[in-house]
């Protein structure tokens, strides 16, 4: 598999009235063609901002202040708007969290799909409409010709998200960035959308960055996981490995806080404390104040070091493979 995306030392900052908030700080990861990466973290961990940074869609007062984003060899940070506009929707597509908000309420579905086709392909309206219908069929929407004439409010949430996915698939992109696309949906619809996206990506060889706070959702989907905390990646590795043998105390805490059928009646583990404010981050390891393993060494921020094949962890006191997990 060849490399598609190479993010190196990405830094995105927000210049607010109260100070500079570094939402993404030194994030690096790579993604191969057709690979699915799960980007996991709590609210405010910088996972969504990382996604928006790749597409150059960080709204002021925020902007990418450092690092490189190499997409198929081109640096998106240096290339800026002209390069990005050609890629958005064509080679890199995005699906948003709330399907109620992503489609323009006053424009018909056909308008919103045809404009996307015509933004990148010099085709007639009829041809664009045919492609739009095809895309709707692909995401399981029946009688697409009729559906195209509807407005977004005439669709349910799940249907709208399917339309958004259909729009993302229109140009058969190399990469889709999905920002919690199932969070706002019913659980049954969530499962459908998940399996459909997975199938569509493997059919077309599209790489996927699935941003989520929900480990359960991403564990069955992603090839690899990257866990983010306070704007940094604190652990990454193959999904099965990370879930079965988390090394970072935070990852471990996240996994333990997912309810398990086997432990019915037992108290759910939780991570004490709250995510730190980006304007007022602790010195040293950002997780230390909440960490059961923290000691004097944690006053110095650890680096993201390799810890086994394809794995890396940012911790002075990682859990070892031999330690038995609380569950599994």
């Amino acid at each position: 598999m060849s490399q598609l995306l190479d993010v190196r030392d990405l830094q995105t900052q927000f210049f607010t009235r109260d100070g500079v908030a570094t939402a993404v700080d030194g994030v690096s990861f790579t993604l191969n063609r057709g690979e699915i990466l799960g980007l996991v973290g709590e609210s405010g961990s910088g996972k969504s901002v990382t996604g928006f940074s790749i597409l150059g869609l960080v709204d002021p007062p925020g902007r990418v202040t450092g690092g490189q984003i190499l997409f198929d060899g081109d640096d998106l940070v240096r290339g800026g708007e002209p390069l990005l506009r050609g890629l958005r929707g064509k080679r890199i597509a995005m699906i948003f969290q709330d399907p109620m908000m992503t489609l323009n309420p006053v424009l018909r579905i056909d308008t919103q799909m045809i404009e996307t086709v015509q933004a990148h392909a010099p085709v007639s309206r009829a041809e664009a409409r045919a492609r739009a219908e095809e895309a709707l069929v692909r995401v399981g929407i029946s009688s697409p010709a009729e559906r195209l004439k509807s407005y977004p409010h005439q669709f349910s949430g799940g249907m709208r998200q399917r339309v958004a996915i259909a729009i993302a698939l229109l140009h058969k992109p190399d990469l889709i960035i999905a920002d919690e696309p199932t969070t706002a949906l019913d659980v049954t619809i969530q499962a459908q959308i998940l399996s459909e996206v997975q199938a569509l990506c493997s059919q077309s060889g599209t790489a996927l960055i699935w941003i989520t706070h929900d480990l359960a959702v991403v564990s069955g989907l992603a090839d690899r996981l990257a866990v983010m905390y306070a704007g940094r990646i604190i652990e990454e590795g193959p999904t099965a490995e990370v879930i079965a043998r988390p090394r970072h105390p935070y990852t471990r805490g996240l996994i333990d806080s997912v309810p398990q059928g086997k432990r019915h009646g037992a108290r759910l583990a939780q991570i004490p404390g709250m995510t730190p404010s980006l304007l007022n981050l602790p010195e040293g390891c950002k997780f230390a104040p909440r960490c059961p393993r923290a000691d004097a060494a944690c006053a110095v921020e650890p680096r993201l070091d390799p810890s086994g094949p394809g794995r890396a962890v940012r911790c002075h006191h990682p859990h070892g493979d031999s330690e038995t997990r609380v569950l599994s």
Binding site: R88, M101, T102, E115
Partner: peptide, 22 residues
């Protein structure tokens, strides 16, 4: 600030179309 404007930009539309239509 609405998501649909960001989504329109994410679709690769020209800034002109985003402003004049969306």
């Amino acid at each position: 600030l609405q998501d649909y404007v960001k989504f329109a930009r994410a679709k690769g539309l020209s800034p002109r179309r985003v402003v004049l239509v969306h």
